[in-house]
Simulated assay, not measured.
Amino acid sequence: MCNMMESRGVLSIIFDLDNTLVDTAGAGRFAIQKVYELLTSTPVLESHIRDICECYLRKLHHESFDPSEGKSIDSVRIHHWYEALQETQGTDPDPDLANSCYYTWKNTRLQALTLSPEVRSLLEELRKNYKLLLLTNGDTQTQWEKIEAVRCEGLFSVVVVGGDHPEQKPAHSIFTHCFKSAGVLPQDCIMVGDSLSTDIQGGVNAGVRATVWINSDCKSLPQGSVTPDYTIPSVLNLNDVLAELMLK
């Protein structure tokens, strides 16, 4: 039985979204710059603007969102901006300004997100020979808005957003859901993503055939972290990995 499974080869590729297929980090930097420009046209002191933006990003990085509390992700993030303005300036800001900061940031980021022609072409070619799955962590609303903005859903046999499920990557359960939805075995799949702690660790936990780490910044592998089977600088190098796997 084991030999039969080995002979099947790679049948399916599971992709992460953010900073794997799309440059979410770059879009975020562009969005923050637009908020910076917005704030320069308000009474906010220019010397405070950078600190306000950095404070918001810290809050975003440490964000803990529970939809069962009855708040929307939009309201939570508007409050991040309100607190960033308040903490930096030491006074209660105009709530409308926090609202404007948030929607400038959100809308600009969504508009800047794009699937490059090269990545789209790669996916279109890969789907001719492999079953493609998209597995992305994050809040339901936020991630589906990104997927809609990028217009990539039709390229995948299965799209799974972590916020729609009880557990997200690296939990075994969400990978099992992917395998069942696509009708594949873990040994049929490779996992491609930029996060060692969620994508690569999750793939290892789930028993996929191989894990592929997108290391666009050429970072050193952190001590004690999970070790990916392959490391490439861009998803555009994935065919090299697939060619090597075919020889095994």
Rank of each mutant, 00 (worst) to 15 (best):
M1G: 01
C2H: 09
M4Y: 13
M4C: 06
M4D: 09
M5H: 07
E6R: 15
E6D: 14
S7G: 07
G9L: 14
I13H: 12
F15P: 02
D16Y: 06
L17V: 06
L17A: 06
V22W: 00
D23H: 08
D23K: 03
A27I: 03
I32F: 05
Q33M: 13
Y36A: 00
E37M: 10
L38P: 00
T40W: 01
S41M: 04
S41K: 02
T42Y: 03
D51F: 13
D51E: 10
I52R: 01
C55L: 04
E63I: 02
S64L: 01
D66W: 00
G70Y: 04
I73N: 10
V76N: 00
I78R: 00
H79F: 03
W81K: 01
Y82A: 04
E83T: 01
E83A: 03
Q86E: 15
T88S: 04
G90A: 04
D92A: 05
D92E: 07
D94W: 02
D96C: 08
N99F: 15
Y102C: 12
K106R: 09
K106F: 01
N107W: 05
L110A: 06
Q111A: 11
L113N: 01
V119M: 08
V119K: 12
S121I: 10
L122P: 06
R127D: 06
Y130L: 09
K131T: 14
L133D: 11
L133H: 14
G138K: 07
D139Q: 13
Q141P: 03
Q141F: 12
Q143K: 02
W144K: 01
R151N: 05
G154M: 01
L155E: 08
S157N: 15
V159S: 07
V160Q: 02
D164I: 03
H165T: 00
E167M: 04
P170I: 12
P170W: 08
S173L: 07
C178R: 05
K180E: 12
G183C: 11
D188V: 05
D188W: 13
C189A: 10
C189N: 13
C189T: 05
G193F: 01
D194G: 02
D194Q: 09
D194T: 02
L196T: 00
D199E: 10
Q201W: 09
G202N: 14
V208F: 03
V208M: 12
R209C: 12
A210K: 03
A210H: 02
D217P: 07
G224Q: 00
V226Y: 00
Y230M: 04
L236V: 08
N239E: 13
D240W: 15
D240A: 11
V241W: 15
V241Y: 15
A243G: 09
E244F: 04
E244N: 15
L245K: 03
